[in-house]
Design a protein around this nucleic acid. Sequence first.
DNA 1: TCAAACTTTCAAAATATACTGAAAGTTTAA
DNA 2: TTAAACTTTCAGTATATTTTGAAAGTTTGA
Lengths: 168, 168
Amino acid sequence: MELAEAKQKFIEAWGKLGSEWGINRTMAQVHALLLVSPEALTTEQIMDALSISRGNANMTLRDLIGWGLVEKQHRAGERKEYFFADKDTWNIAKQVAKERRKRELDPVVKILDELSNVKGDPKDPEYLTFHKSVTDINKLAKNVDKTLDTMIKAEESWFWGSIVKMFR
Amino acid sequence: MELAEAKQKFIEAWGKLGSEWGINRTMAQVHALLLVSPEALTTEQIMDALSISRGNANMTLRDLIGWGLVEKQHRAGERKEYFFADKDTWNIAKQVAKERRKRELDPVVKILDELSNVKGDPKDPEYLTFHKSVTDINKLAKNVDKTLDTMIKAEESWFWGSIVKMFR
DNA sequence: TCAAACTTTCAAAATATACTGAAAGTTTAA
DNA sequence: TTAAACTTTCAGTATATTTTGAAAGTTTGA
């Protein structure tokens, strides 16, 4: 397989996985493109490589910066902005975990906490089932939350070392 | 807060979380509705509770059964089918992990394996960056894969016990 | 065998999401 | 201060996803 073809496949696969997990396909593709680029790229280059419009490229890059996955680079004597992706897989994973926890998991945990406190007739099966499901899911969500928090604060070596040993 | 209102909030929250993570909102809502129902429900009851069409209810229930989260119940002397959700949070988490691994993660790992083997000029920075990113992500994906596999095979007590102790 | 009771299918419609491109905005250097 | 070089915005458009609902299919009991 040619390198160019392989890059294309990588970009497609990453875009597909992203979209299946609720991340905009184009955003995942731009990220993939930057991941396989040794040099920082300009908006123009990204537009060309992925056949997307200037507006789309601009918004997507802004989002990626917001996720902490990409950064702008300025070069002396140049007006253009260059974009560069952090290539460290562990940083990427941590960053994604951190953002999704904050944006999506934490708000739900907040609601589940409220709903866990709803009082009702302890003889009413409707209430009992509601209460049990909500508190059980709350416990699970809090566990996931705590796990992600630990992961975010952890050192890379911890992940590649101890978790692998543990899970077997 | 009234029980009815609380149920509604739970259904909404679960639907929102689902859609943010690439799961059809209606599917997550039907699941939530069944989770808080002590008794199995008919298609009609689900249609009414969530204001969805018969077709949608039917397809969504079929999907939920496909995910292993819901099962059909038949009652003696009745033509109607009843639907019931497994209420065990641990089973739900395992089931979702299992399906998403199979449907979405494994296919990507397969592609990454192929791309890891693409050969190129070891002096070409384009190749080197591509190769490093792909192999690094492949390692991470395999780790996640292995972790999920262990989780799927693990006992509930293991999860609630040792993982909680570990992450702190 | 019939028809009532129920389930499934899927083309068309509705809705939600993503993208475009041109205009407006900003920065820089002469 | 001007204008070229570049970035940002967002209303309108396009695309993708989800939902509807009526027709077709199936099952059951008389």
